[in-house]
């Protein structure tokens, strides 16, 4: 069996809802049945074979080729299997993902992995605002799994994050870790303003000194025993995070946000 491959024929002018093309919904369907599925695009409904050339038959390994930034909801609530996106992806990538693996070679839009529950998401390029966040009005963001971003991330990374790990090799925008309830966000590059705004619990692990607000208190420098375990768990990833030379266990610890519960921590590598 070869991977079920959707090759984009042209770039529709309106955004396309890709949520029907996930492994668990395609399981057991023939190529003809898949071709006849309809995708919402603006006010139009487009047949899959209008937009994509279809090849392969393994519904548990989906490949989307020539992807671009208007393909939204790729891998929505994915429940097992894998999706590989060659190119960029739109908003709401891996939204509510339950388990499985999604890899994107390019950049991704807003709300990627919002309210994700489990699984693994890898983004080769940059990602927009609200990575791993809660949807507007909701109180609970990502609840588990791992996100790896090789480029930069936008604002509000991990807003309302509940559990899970977000790894960013590049920079993160303003309000990184805002309103976090728990979980871990690691940023190798620079972070923006209002880091950890209204954080309750959880860990922000940073390679560079951030601009911290007055509501974070310095707890001193420490050698923390859990960090080697954490870095060991990164070794399986195809990432800079897997490199033993980037690991550390000596950190400056800041507690905050004291204007909220104040049980979160910002750990900054001591150089």
């Amino acid at each position: 069996m070869s991977a079920l491959t959707f090759t984009l024929k042209y770039q529709p002018k309106q955004r396309v809802d890709m949520s029907p093309l996930v492994c668990q919904l395609l399981q057991g369907k023939t190529t003809q049945q898949i071709a006849a599925l309809e995708l919402q695009s603006g006010k139009l409904k487009l047949r899959v074979d209008q937009v994509f050339d279809i090849s392969g038959d393994d519904t548990q390994a989906i490949v989307i080729k020539n992807s671009f930034a208007k393909l939204d909801f790729i891998g929505k609530e994915l429940d097992g299997g894998s999706i590989t996106v060659e190119g960029d992806a739109g908003a709401y990538l891996a939204m509510g993902m339950k388990t499985g693996e999604i890899k994107v070679t390019g950049s991704v839009g807003l709300y990627a992995a919002c309210e994700m529950k489990k699984g693994y998401l890898e983004i080769g390029g940059n990602v927009g605002d609200f990575l791993g966040a809660a949807l507007p009005g909701n109180k609970m963001g990502m609840k588990g799994g791992t996100i790896l971003v090789k480029g930069n991330a936008g604002e509000r990374v991990g807003d309302h994050l509940r559990r899970g790990t977000i790894l960013i090799e590049g920079n993160a925008g303003d309000y990184c870790g805002s309103r976090m309830t728990a979980g871990t966000i690691a940023v190798m590059g620079q972070t923006g303003r209002y880091l950890g705004y209204a954080m309750r619990r959880g860990t922000l692990l940073l390679w560079n000194q951030p601009q911290l607000s007055a509501s974070f208190n310095d707890c001193g420098s420490h050698t923390l025993g859990f960090l080697p375990l954490l870095f060991n768990s990164f070794k399986k990833f195809n990432s800079k995070f897997a490199d033993a030379s980037v690991a550390f266990n000596r950190v400056q610890r800041y507690a905050g946000d004291m204007s909220e519960m104040g049980k979160a921590e910002v750990l900054v590598k001591i150089k």
Binding site: G144, A182, R201, L229, L230, S233
Partner: peptide
């Protein structure tokens, strides 16, 4: 006493308990 921190690493839950010599993991 409420200062403990949970961390789930590789699917296993760990507790970091603040103690006088640092942290008990």
């Amino acid at each position: 006493d409420g200062f403990q921190i949970a961390k789930v690493i590789n699917g296993k839950r760990y507790w970091r308990i603040p103690v006088m010599d640092g942290e008990f993991l």
